[in-house]
Structure formats: structure tokens, C-alpha cells
Design a protein around this nucleic acid. Structure first.
Lengths: 215, 215
DNA sequence: ATTCTTGTTGACCGATTGGTCAGGTTGTGT
DNA sequence: ACACAACCTGACCAATCGGTCAACAAGAAT
């Protein structure tokens, strides 16, 4: 994951920059292609074309198609985990869950491709990130359920089932990324405007917070 | 779509039965394979094996892979449209939306594969059912939004945005099918029991109905 | 019994795929 | 100037794919 910080650090180095830039371009292109075509439908040639590199060059940086795919999936998972920090250090559900919804809605807008790749991965049985689900995600989920249960016990929200609340939250926020095309079609074929996104965020936040009796 | 009701109807006919049974077996296998591997990852050979037929026989009933895929997508869409009738003839949101949630949750349990195929299709830009989104789905959505708006005007629920309420409803109910694997992993690797499904349905219904101020 | 339609299938084909590799170029340290 | 490592890439390959086809088997109609 991270272990190359010793060799030749006199200058930022053009060589290092080349590697970093090419890997970034490949990952960006791969995220888009995997999202739009799925793992099976994506081709290394298409990713290469979109990244502006010859196909053989992709295999210089990423050994196999699966390695590249794995990196893309890990990327969105880490982004989501970072956003989850909104949950901590909150005095109650209105602040904690409200901030979490805002963060996840923002990610759905800024990283729609990653969200789709994750959804596709899970739908296909999570062949490459099953261990993440069983360790990191499970631990995170259990921790937040405990926090929510405490808020319930303190009378700060209705006695709902915390687990199903999390599912509703995940489902609703990610829906704006995963089903973005359907939403756009129902919006006269135009992407949601800034104003419409603000209304979407406010609607989701209000409905969820009212649904769990926090407001 | 439907136009063979004239020729040779003396008996139910073994030939007709063969065709119906084979098409059914192929569609069932295809739904599963498309859901688990995506359109690009699915192979006609795999579908044939699962249906218990030689591959060449698939092309006798369905000309191309895309034709077969199209039929699978149309199937789940019609099932959802049928369930949407729960919405009509309801005196208020508690009955109408409550029944709709129940129906969609039941479908997520009984037809998880179809739901995944639909999700995958939409995520990839709806290449084969774009016209359905622009016609049937749009009309249906506009109609229900009008009903919901009427309920709001009659003071039967809070003045939420009907469109975003529908999105939350679709997202949450279909999440139990599309992300069933993730839910199962977080349930100690075991599928939801009958009791857990009842609790899921009740949780979703309660949170949504409370979220829109109907209870 | 003969004819015709429907259903069945192994063998095959062109196209595309992920991945390899040899031989090249470019930048870096000495 | 030299050597070395990192980077680049056209050409190539075995495997797999969707789809075709000719030959055949089985019911139905006459």
C-alpha cells in the first residue's frame, strides 16, 4: 500500500512525477470505463485510449485488469470512510447524521463513477473486496450502530432500528450517483442544476431526520 | 409482443409447451447470469449450461444476446409496474405509499436478480431501455407526483418534495435486492430470515411514512 | 405413408480479448 | 562519456467470445 519514501528524494524528480501522473490518468480512465461498461464489458484498450496511452503501457503500471479494478474499488471505499468521520464528535443525530448525509450526497455528485463501480462489485457478490466487507465495513457499521443506539437511549431520536436506518441512508444517497442517468432522464434529460442538488440534499436530510424522529 | 392466437389451437399442443418451457428456462437462467456477471461478463455458454441446453439452442429461441437481455430487463420492469397499482385507489399516503413499500420490498426478496439487472442497465446509461424511461416511467412518475401533491394539499402529509420521496422509496426498497450480498455479509454471512425481513419491511415503512409526515 | 413445420445439436468461424515480449528511448547517477 | 534503471510500445499470441450452419430428429397435418 505505502512503502516508497526512501530512495532518491533530492528533487521531486521527473521520473517519480511521470509514474504518479500516469497512474492517476489510468485510474481516472479506468474508473469511468468500469462504471460505464462493468468489469466484464470494460476493455484495457478502451481504458488506454481514454488515458491517452498505448495499451501495453497500462500493463507496465498495473499487472492485470483485475489489479487495476481492485485499485479503483479501494479508492471509492476510502473516500466513503473519510466522509464517515462526519459522524464522530457530533452531539446528536441532527448534527452527526445530517453531516453524514451531506457528505455522502456530495460524494455522489463528485464521484459518481466510483459509486457505480462499488455498486457493481457488490451486486456481483463482491469477488475482490469481500474481506473489506467482513472487516472494515462490519467494524465501522457496528461502531455507528452503537452511537445511534446511545442517541436513542438518550431520547434524542425515535427508537428505530439503527441498522435499517444506515441501509436507508446508504441507499438513498448513493441512488443519486448509481441511478443518476434515470434521474437525469426524469429531469427532462438535463443533469441536476446546483439549485436542484441543494434541494435534493435538503429533501433527503429532512426526510431521513424526520423519519428517525430527530426533528 | 403478442400476436399468435389464431393458428392451431385444437389442443394445448406439446410443441407449444416445449417452446414455452424452454423460453422460461432460458429466461430464468439468463436473469441469474446477467445479474451475477453483468451484460459484458455474462456468456451465452454459461446461460446455456445453467438452463440445461446446448448453446446453439439458445440462438434458436433468442436471436442475439442482446435480445435475450432485453427480455430480462422488460420482465422486471413489468413486475414493478404491476406493483405500482398498490398506489392507486388509496385514500391516503399511509395506505397507498405503505402498500407500495410492502410490494416493492416483497419483489426485492422474490426477484433480486431482476432488480440487479435493472440497476446495472441504468448504471450503464440504459442503452436498451432508454425509451421506457422517457415514456412509461416518466408518465407513471408524473402521475404519482400529482397524487402525492394532492395528499399534501389535503394536509395528509408534510410538504415534502414528491419526486425526491419517490427516489428515496425506490432506492431504499431496491437496496435490499441490489446490495443483498452486503446486507448478508453484515448479517454474519446469513441471508435475512423471515423475521428479519418482516422487521426490514416494518422499519422501512415506518421511517418513510414518518419522514413524510404521514404518521 | 408422406410431407412439412418445429425443434435440436456438434462443429465451426471471424472477431476480440487480456496479456506478453523483445527492442527501443529517455532520464539519472557517477 | 559511460552504465544503469526506468519507461515506452508495436507486434504478436493463445484463449474465448457471439453467432452461424448443415444435418438431423420429432410431432403434426394431409
Amino acid at each position: 500500500m505505502s512503502g516508497d519514501a526512501q530512495i532518491s528524494r533530492l528533487k521531486p524528480g521527473r521520473r517519480t512525477d511521470i509514474r504518479r501522473e500516469n497512474e492517476r490518468a489510468i485510474l481516472e480512465a479506468a474508473e469511468k470505463v468500469f462504471a460505464e461498461a462493468g468489469f466484464g464489458g470494460a476493455t484495457m484498450q478502451l481504458i488506454a485510449d481514454m488515458a491517452g496511452l498505448p495499451k501495453a503501457n497500462l500493463h507496465y503500471y498495473f499487472a492485470t485488469k483485475e489489479d487495476l479494478y481492485r485499485r479503483v474499488v479501494q479508492q471509492i471505499f476510502e473516500i466513503w470512510l473519510d466522509a464517515a468521520s462526519s459522524f464522530d464528535d457530533a452531539p446528536g443525530p441532527v448534527e452527526g447524521i445530517g453531516a453524514y448525509i451531506d457528505a455522502k450526497m456530495d460524494i455522489s455528485r463528485t464521484h459518481p463513477h466510483g459509486s457505480k463501480v462499488w455498486a457493481s462489485e457488490v451486486m456481483h457478490g463482491a469477488p475482490v473486496i469481500q474481506d473489506y466487507l467482513e472487516t472494515t465495513l462490519r467494524d465501522w457499521t457496528d461502531g455507528r450502530i452503537a452511537v445511534i443506539q446511545r442517541w436513542i437511549d438518550e431520547g434524542k431520536m425515535a427508537p428505530i432500528n439503527p441498522r435499517h436506518m444506515l441501509y436507508m441512508l446508504w441507499a438513498t444517497t448513493q441512488h443519486y450517483a448509481d441511478f443518476g442517468h434515470q434521474i437525469q432522464t426524469l429531469n427532462d434529460g438535463k443533469p441536476l442544476s446546483d439549485k436542484q442538488w441543494r434541494e435534493a440534499k435538503a429533501s433527503v436530510r429532512d426526510m431521513v431526520l424526520r423519519g428517525i424522529g430527530a426533528i
